[in-house]
Design a protein around this nucleic acid. Structure first.
Lengths: 212, 212, 212, 212
DNA sequence: CATGAATGAGAGTTCATTCAT
DNA sequence: TATGAATGAACTCTCATTCAT
């Protein structure tokens, strides 16, 4: 065969790990860690089962990579934008509640978060990792903004951390609802409408000197 | 060995199922369905592995029994008390938010709810069951009360179902927080304080004609 | 309760072993030794599982009892009648081939024989027992009659044991056919017709000086 | 250990199924279906237990493969040779009875046939399969030849199917005898001698116008 | 690098046997 | 005697992991 045949479409090798993690995210979030089959992950990634072990030493390490993949890029940017926000706290809510709704509707954070909840007891390092890298900083960030707003007389007195929870909880609930009950026939929540209504309640209930 | 040890066989047909379900709840909620070992459930229940099969045909059926065990008694009573509540909606919140906090802190509903979230995709019948038997009726109940309060001019305009979600979401978050992140070092939420602060915000943000 | 109620029908206890063996015969011959469940034997015998162990030490011993139960009464009587038969060998065949057909159609020997064939390798003692107590004596008996008939010039020359096999084999085949293939739709053999036709062939083929 | 032992892994996808079926035939025919252990089949086949499942989905499917393995090649050839036989029916018997004796002495059909008898009730599909694919066609073939011979005036009047049974039964008996009673000490039948003597009897008893 | 046949420990399940009642 | 709940060893089957190719 001196004549080279048409070049076989050799997919870029550099992104194999990414493709595997992506496939694994799908399987893990559908089945949970234990019920996920490496066979199926390999199949969805378009590689052989053995190839998984060229990039990840064990199933657990692959799971770690999946869980960690959800975190890296987002937080820093969000922090920057939130802390740089110019206006008052009410204005910040007006901008960011719809943004959160947007993120929730599209990002892969949701299924991974559900996995962290479901598998946390089996993989405490991952729960710790998520807590330390994503959840606690996020809560801390929002709490800090609230505390500053309280100092400026914009937000009523109260524990900023609890306020942060009150602000974020409905979105958590909407995500879990979508992942858990919508597939079995529950009516989904309209997160944009939820964001709007939540904004109204928070402005009247949280801020000082606003008109409902 | 003149002192006979505890007898090897114990016949307690009446109590076994409850003990097994209780032990299974512990193991399933710690490990998830797939990673839970029948060996360990049997050990915690103080029976042999074979004895499990005298009461439950398969591991899955035992899991169903566990999930369903959380539901039966509570809902009817709650509904009755809520619908019979005499005063205005604000008073109802004052009474019931601390009650919810109480229930959350003590009941076994929390770990089972976490299991439903984590295993819902693998056991859609259970997700459906929980949705239909517990979650949807609960949301519907609260939504109905809100709609009535709106008709009486007590609650601001808005989608009652979203309001219901806003009311209940922080407690869901507190539960999942406790189950997921507290074991790895997160600071727990004080649900009683959360109830109190949530009440304040809701009264100001939800009700009409209240003073913040 | 001083007034004795109506006497409960207490089945004669003396025959429990017999009832158990009878039930066991049914189950063993339907399922084979390994697939037979003591639960089902007990149920068919109308006793509890534990009661089996009051009469038989193990499943295997019960199986032995079943296999041996088929033998005891029959052979001696058959031997006596065959050896006392007054007429020539041809007349003997005329009388006994239909008798064999009759026995085959009704007796429990057939399913037990099938079990001995099927389980012989697992229970060599039983195969030996059947061989020594039933099959070999039967063959020996018939061979002896043939040898005597040969000495009298009634039967052609040849190995009497092979002749015996030739005489009995079609009935064995009919039994196994009924047990194995008839249940899945095969047309059964009419053993009476088989006996008649076999008699015709044997008289022409085996005897000397007969007219076909 | 400078001398490396045989490698732990052997990749021989082509040969495995045949080797496994062959090993399984041995174990199944010795123990019966239920008492056969996959461990032992794997050991005899020289593979791991898990490897069995690469080729057969369940133990039952492996059993089916074993039972079916006995059938495929033989029947068509036999039919062709029998139907093409040029001479009279007596000549055909002269040729084929020794051939049957030969086949019985060597082929694996014998132990499989015993399995079909022993397990037929538990696996009716297999009994049906054997009946339809092997036994019924065989009987039908022989019956047809007999009917033709009767039409030519070579064979006496009578039911051809019963004649076929009479012809074949002694060989069935010899096979079962060898499988069941010879291992526990019974004197085997000399199948070649049986074929010869059976031929003599059949020529005298079945054919018309032959001299004994 | 890549494959996938092969491994083997470990899971859920069954059932002959035991024993408190 | 008689019961049947309870036991536990042993089975079939699964699947993460390995390695000859």
């Amino acid at each position: 065969m001196l004549q080279p045949g048409p070049p076989k479409f050799q997919r870029r090798k550099e992104d194999r790990p990414g493709e595997i993690v992506s496939a694994a995210l799908g399987v893990f979030s559908e089945k949970g860690f234990a019920a996920a089959r490496l066979d199926e992950i390999a199949r969805r990634a378009g590689v052989s089962k053995g190839a998984l072990y060229l990039y990840f030493e064990t199933k657990e390490e692959l799971f770690h990579a999946v869980v960690k993949s959800a975190i890296s890029p987002n937080l820093a940017m969000v922090r920057e934008r939130l802390e740089a926000f110019p206006g008052p706290f009410g204005g910040l809510l007006e901008v960011f509640l719809p943004t959160i709704a947007q993120v929730i509707a599209t990002s892969a954070v949701a299924p991974i978060g559900k996995m962290v909840i479901g598998e946390g007891r089996n993989f405490p390092e991952l729960a710790r990792y998520w807590h330390e890298e994503l959840v606690a900083p996020m809560i801390g960030l929002v709490s800090g903004l609230i505390a500053k707003a309280q100092a400026r007389g914009e937000v009523r007195a109260g524990d900023p951390r609890l306020f942060a929870a009150q602000i974020m909880a409905p979105f958590l609930m909407a995500v879990l609802w979508r992942e858990t009950f919508v597939p079995v026939g529950a009516e989904p929540f309209d997160v944009q409408a939820l964001a709007a209504q939540h904004l109204t309640v928070l402005k009247a209930g949280l801020l000082i000197g606003e008109k409902a």
